[in-house]
């Protein structure tokens, strides 16, 4: 097609520029506000240019609001979710696609069911489960009359495992890997078997290297998801030092009766969104592929 549409071309560029502005301007204002002083943000109209207070505000945020710790928590939680979910998913997908064993389909459907109910719709009982992981044993103990089981108590509130494990309990990654494994030529497995490879060797030496690009793409998505968690950390952290950065922002939100410290909030918000934004900018090629493949 050799079509000339000069007017439409200009209009399209204008539309895309407007879209880019809608994305960038809010982020830019976060940065600008984060670099102003208390007096400057109260001025009307507010400055469109950054002020000189960015690092001073950052110091305040890091020391007073303990944001260094919160950012570290975010990093630990996001990495834990990424590594944990990838690890349990890839082996589970290997098991359901490459092995014939009794109750294979039962296992498959049990995992499949977890796709259907997001954590948001079952927050109270999920919280109770995390507040005492031994709960099912307690109930079993009271049925059987074994006091030792009733007294068991394993509380995950304010712990990293409590923040990570329940978020690993979903099968999205398992399905992506299963899907990918089903597209791998059967000849590879046959050849490996003829060469005398054990299942584990086949997995480690053939399947994992083949899955590398899927693993990277999924890792990016899971990391972003883990970094941006809100509801679960909100419920499971009562100690301020165990919260993640996004929850820390909520605590910095100016209330109507106090001094509106928007510059500190915006500074902290900028610090919080910087790592995931960099991840997406640097690893974009991988990420787009993963997003469309996995439907997430």
């Amino acid at each position: 097609m050799n079509e000339r549409t000069p007017i439409l071309d200009v209009v399209c560029h204008l539309i895309l520029l407007a879209g880019a502005a809608l994305v960038c301007l809010p982020i830019y204002f976060v940065f600008v506000t984060g670099s102003l002083s208390q007096a400057e943000i109260m001025r009307v109209p507010m400055s469109w240019l950054p002020g000189g207070q960015f690092f001073a505000n950052m110091q305040t945020v890091l020391s007073n609001a303990n944001f260094g710790r919160l950012l570290l928590n975010s990093f630990i939680i996001a990495s834990g979710i990424t590594v944990g979910k990838l690890a349990i998913s890839v082996i589970a997908a290997f098991a359901v696609t490459y092995f014939r064993f009794p109750f294979r389909m039962t296992a498959f459907w049990l995992i499949f069911m977890s796709l259907m109910l997001p954590i948001e719709v079952r927050i109270v009982p999920t919280y109770e489960s995390a507040a005492n992981v031994a709960l099912p044993l307690n109930i079993l103990g009271s049925w059987l009359g074994i006091q030792a089981l009733v007294d068991l108590d394993w509380n995950l509130v304010n712990t990293y495992s409590g923040l990570i494990l329940p978020l690993i309990a979903s099968a999205t990654a398992t399905f992506l890997f299963r899907q990918f494994f089903l597209t791998i030529p059967d000849e590879l497995c046959e050849a490996a078997r003829i060469d005398g490879a054990t299942p584990w060797q086949f997995f480690r030496l053939i399947l994992l290297p083949l899955s590398r690009s899927n693993i990277v793409a999924l890792a990016i998505i899971l990391f972003l998801m883990g970094w941006n968690q809100y509801l679960w950390p909100l419920l499971l952290t009562t100690e301020a030092a165990m919260a993640n950065a996004v929850i820390g922002l909520k605590k910095l939100m100016p209330q109507s009766d106090s001094l509106p410290t928007w510059h500190l909030l915006m500074n902290a918000a900028f610090l919080t969104m910087l790592p995931p934004t960099l991840v997406i900018l640097i690893l974009q090629r991988w990420f787009v592929k993963g997003l469309v493949d996995s439907g997430k």
Binding site: A92, A95, Y98, R100, C189
Partner: peptide
């Protein structure tokens, strides 16, 4: 369905592979 044509027939290993997720 959803099983590779070339597969392994064993139940102990898949059990341990599925155990963490389940």
């Amino acid at each position: 369905s959803g099983l590779k044509r070339a597969h392994f027939r064993e139940w102990r290993l898949p059990f341990w592979l599925l155990a963490p997720q389940l």
